[in-house]
Computed example of a mutant assay.
Amino acid sequence: MSQPVTRPPARYDDLSAVFLNCTLTRSPGLSHTQTLMNLSVELMRSVGVAVTNVRAVDHDIAPGVQPDMTEHGFDRDDWPAIQRQVMDADILVIGTPIWLGEKSSVATRVVERLYSFSGELTPDGQYAYYGRVGGVLVTGNEDGVKHCAMNLLYSLQHLGFVIPPQADAGWIGEVGPGASYGDPSEDGGPPIGFDNDFTNRNTTFMTWNLLHLARILKDAGGIPAYGNQRPQWFEGERFGFANPEYR
Rank of each mutant, 00 (worst) to 15 (best):
M1L: 11
M1P: 00
Q3E: 06
P4R: 13
V5W: 09
P8R: 08
P9I: 12
A10F: 13
D13I: 04
D13N: 07
D14E: 14
C22N: 08
S27T: 14
S31G: 07
T35V: 15
T35C: 06
M37E: 15
M37L: 14
S40D: 05
S46A: 12
G48L: 11
T52F: 15
N53G: 05
V54H: 05
V54T: 10
R55D: 03
R55Q: 09
D58Q: 01
D58P: 03
V65E: 01
D68G: 04
M69P: 05
E71F: 10
E71N: 08
E71A: 11
G73R: 00
G73S: 00
R76W: 14
P80S: 09
A81D: 13
M87G: 09
M87H: 10
M87N: 09
A89I: 05
D90S: 08
D90K: 03
L92S: 02
V93H: 01
I94M: 07
I94H: 01
P97K: 15
P97Y: 12
I98F: 01
E102Y: 10
S105N: 06
T108A: 05
R109Q: 13
V110K: 02
V110G: 09
E112I: 02
S118R: 12
S118D: 03
G119H: 12
E120D: 06
E120S: 09
D124S: 13
Q126G: 04
Y127I: 06
Y130W: 12
G131I: 15
R132K: 15
V136T: 03
G140K: 06
G140P: 01
V145Q: 09
K146N: 02
H147E: 00
H147T: 10
H147V: 05
A149S: 12
N151V: 14
L152I: 12
Y154S: 04
Y154T: 09
L156K: 03
Q157W: 10
G160V: 13
V162P: 00
I163S: 14
I163P: 06
P164R: 04
A167N: 00
D168N: 11
G170C: 06
G170I: 01
W171F: 13
W171P: 00
I172E: 00
G176P: 04
G176D: 02
P177E: 08
Y181I: 04
D183P: 00
D183K: 06
P184F: 06
S185G: 08
D187G: 13
G189L: 07
G189P: 02
P190T: 12
P191V: 14
D195M: 10
D197V: 14
F198Y: 10
F198L: 14
T199C: 15
T199N: 10
N200Q: 15
R201Q: 14
N202E: 13
N202W: 14
T203L: 02
T204M: 11
M206F: 03
W208Q: 07
L210T: 00
L210N: 01
L211F: 10
A214W: 00
D219S: 04
D219N: 04
A220W: 07
G221R: 01
G222F: 07
I223H: 11
A225G: 05
R230S: 07
R230M: 12
Q232S: 11
Q232N: 11
F234G: 09
F234L: 14
E235C: 07
E237D: 13
E237T: 11
F239A: 04
F239M: 03
F241I: 11
N243E: 15
E245A: 13
R247W: 03
R247E: 13
